[in-house]
Amino acid sequence: MPEATASDSTSDGVQIDLFSGNRMANLTSMEKIRLILDGVRDGNIVILEEGLSPDEESKLIEVTMAEISPDEFNGIEIETYPRSQTADQSFLDRLMGRQSTQKLTVIGPANQIQTLHKDENLISALVSRK
């Protein structure tokens, strides 16, 4: 179960599953990927407080590819903050030792991602909470 769920089932809002770093810490890579993809395939936006390791990201892409099926699921959008939004920030990242795992990661269904982009206040609100 997600750590926190903000749901608005009365309108055409999106459900957001927010997983804290603690919640994810004890899961295996495959459990994390399952948790993410189950949420996304239900049409939710999944937010990870601490993101995934590069190896887990690579497996997430691989498993996502295996699950894509016509007219049902066509993949994910994944965005991380604040890492590498601009060239300046990626320079900063390097200064700070870019291995930081504390990168807020937002994952959503590719066919609904307009919602994610449109609602930028939502993202900045979450980023500033950090």
Binding site: I61, I68, N74, G75, I78, N111
Partner: peptide, 8 residues
């Protein structure tokens, strides 16, 4: 090309 989505 590596991508996270493919839509037929």
């Amino acid at each position: 090309g590596v991508t996270t989505k493919v839509d037929y």
